[in-house]
Design a protein around this nucleic acid. Structure first.
Length: 558
RNA sequence: AGGGGUAUCGCCAAGUUGGUAAGGCACCAGAUUCUGAAUCUGGCAUUCGUUGGUUCGAGUCCAGCUACCCCUGCCA
């Protein structure tokens, strides 16, 4: 499905239905509501694409709203990174960046209103007592002894909570609903707690903070959100969402409606903020933007494109069934995008020297090489008596299906000549250290007599002009079982080979002045991006993803 | 055990007045190829968790059963 094609998931269908029924005549309005307590990851990308996409498809708007109601866990570092990541992904909230903390005053007023309506009360119970009285999954809870205080007393106490008269945990404000409800979220949920904590935006102005369940529906309502899209685990909270807005008198035809979808889970990686944080804290990765991380900053550094991620989010769909998407789907989307956009270049990761004995010493020839098989553009690459090829492209005793270089056989050098392996040079231990080959001078690429059919074509690099580079070969961060599931101890499942650093790779000279962030296809190897660690004398590449490799499959079968 | 959800190919996922199973990924086969890439062609669910029922006809309706996920934070 094309990226801008209207997707018809069940959320869109709910919107269509609402519109048909005459609801939300002002238009559709969604929001993306991250808590600034960590970096955004691929799972958030699904939510971002969904929420902003829904707005786009319905001619509506999507807000960015930081859900910053818990000052002890949140930080400006995260609000900055979140904005950067959303923009990078290609979405814009225009002038609609909000914070739940923008509404603290209003939220407080709504709480007072709830008290006045007899629907909320201050509870002096300890956290432990509240827990004990909540009941269990099968038994009803017990009502708090403070449940039936007068409105006046509640108002007085809540005012004093706000004024800072009480210590953390001394009292809470609770909604007064039904301690016997089979839905635990309706057993008088706590809606305000005391926390003498410094908030990254409101500073020390408040010492009481609203709970998510209270702040979220009201923030939605305040912003005129029509469809509040969240993940499945909030399904049980919807009755409270509706109860709150109903209790406060919001019109059912215009008030926001919560719709839940299944979060993204991906094989071979972690998509949980907690685990991502653990990887960073324990030093298993270099940071939030380590190219092996599923964070958007990690994927960005790895070289993934925003378009590829958007396409991926589009293709996996949106539904309510918990699912585990195979990482190959993501890789497919990256390859699909990069195949179109990345220029081709030659690089040798594991060099084997080749001397072309019938090429005169000192002679350098410049050959024409296309930058992209479809989109044109050429460059010149040097060619001379000494070149390097990939070690894997030579086999002394090769199986019949191996159509690269082997003794007394021919192979084509991409953009250059057909060569024949005449002599294999070995060291004392018998390791191949050099090859002597001859070129067929009539076979020059593009020439009139170049059309001789040769089964194999390999990449190479000219010895004197090649640039040395560091290439970081990234692989899956995690090993998973056949079903893609992580074991309980995910640290034990870390792939020890998730990063292999090649220090002395050789790249053709054309990439010399390319800027960090530039993506290439290294012919026959994969897609690579210039890392930001690159300095004047140390070029660093990250492998984004390999090319599909049919030969690897054939090898495995043998 | 109470409540809330979900079950369609190895993985995602369409299927909406019941009419005889889209598409993508992966995989397989072939064509093509100066990237064993890309591209192209063909293959890939007589069957929709399961058992019954209604019906000329059911993935779609009804009843029962089973499996899995979420919920007992003053986290979001």
């Amino acid at each position: 499905m094309a990226e801008n094609e209207k997707s018809t998931n069940f959320v869109q269908q709910a919107i269509d239905e609402d519109l048909k029924n005459g609801k939300y005549t002002e238009g559709i309005h969604t929001r993306f509501p991250p808590e600034p307590n960590g970096y955004l990851h691929i799972g958030h990308a699904k939510s971002i694409c969904l929420n902003f996409g829904l707005a786009l498809n319905n001619n509506g708007l999507c807000n960015l709203r930081f859900d910053d109601t818990n000052p002890t866990k949140e930080d400006v570092e995260y609000v900055d990174s979140i904005q950067e990541d959303i923009h990078w992904l290609g979405f814009d909230w225009q002038d609609r960046k909000f914070y739940a903390s923008d509404y603290f005053e209003k939220l407080y007023d709504y709480a007072v209103e709830l008290i006045k309506r007899g629907l909320a009360y201050v509870d002096d119970s300890t956290a432990e007592e509240i827990r004990q009285n909540r009941g269990t999954l099968t038994e009803a809870g017990k009502e708090s002894p403070f449940r039936n205080r007068s409105v006046e007393e509640n108002l007085d106490l809540f005012t004093r909570m706000k004024a800072g008269e009480f210590a953390d945990g001394a009292r809470v404000l609770r909604a007064k609903i039904d301690m016997a409800s089979p839905n635990i979220n309706m057993r008088d949920p706590v809606i305000y707690r005391i926390a003498h904590a410094h908030h990254h935006r409101t500073g020390d102005a408040w010492c009481i903070y609203p709970m998510y369940d209270f702040a979220h529906p009201l923030s939605d309502a305040i912003e005129g959100i029509t469809h509040s899209v969240c993940t499945l685990e909030f399904e049980d909270h919807r009755p409270f969402y509706d109860w709150l807005l109903e209790s406060l008198g919001f019109d059912v035809n215009t008030r926001p409606r919560q719709i839940e979808f299944a979060r993204l889970d991906l094989t071979n990686t972690v998509t949980s903020k907690r685990k991502l944080l653990q990887l960073v804290k324990e030093g298993h990765v270099s940071g939030w933007d380590d190219p092996r991380m599923s964070t958007l900053s990690g994927l960005r550094r790895r070289g993934f494109t925003p378009a590829a991620i958007r396409n991926f989010c589009n293709e996996i769909g949106v539904a309510k069934a918990n699912s585990l998407v195979d990482i190959s789907m993501l890789e497919h989307c990256v390859r699909e995008d990069l195949n179109e956009t990345a220029d081709r270049v030659m690089a040798v990761l594991n060099p084997l020297k080749v001397v072309l004995t019938n090429v005169p010493e000192g002679k350098v020839e410049y050959l024409v090489a296309e930058n992209h098989p479809k989109h044109g553009g050429n460059r010149y690459i040097p060619f001379s008596r000494e070149i390097y090829i990939e070690r894997d492209d030579f086999m002394e005793c090769a199986p019949k299906k191996f159509f690269r270089l082997k003794p007394d056989c021919e192979v084509r050098l991409k953009h250059a000549y057909i060569i024949k392996c005449e002599e294999v040079i070995k060291d004392a231990e018998g390791n191949v250290i050099e090859l002597h080959c001859t070129i067929d001078p009539t076979s020059k690429s593009g020439g009139a007599t170049a059309n001789r059919k040769i089964k194999g074509t390999i990449h190479w690099v000219e010895a004197n002009s090649a640039i040395k580079a560091e290439v970081r070969l990234y692989d899956y961060l995690l090993k998973t079982d056949e079903n893609g599931n992580l074991p309980d101890d995910f640290i034990a499942a870390l792939n020890p080979d998730s990063l292999v650093v090649v220090k002395n790779a050789l790249i053709e000279p054309s990439v010399k002045f390319a800027a960090p962030g530039t993506r290439y296809q290294f012919l026959r190897l994969g897609y690579f991006v210039i890392d930001y660690d690159t300095t004047f004398d140390n070029l660093v590449f990250n492998r984004i993803v390999t090319l599909k490799d049919t030969w690897a499959k054939i090898k495995c079968k043998d």
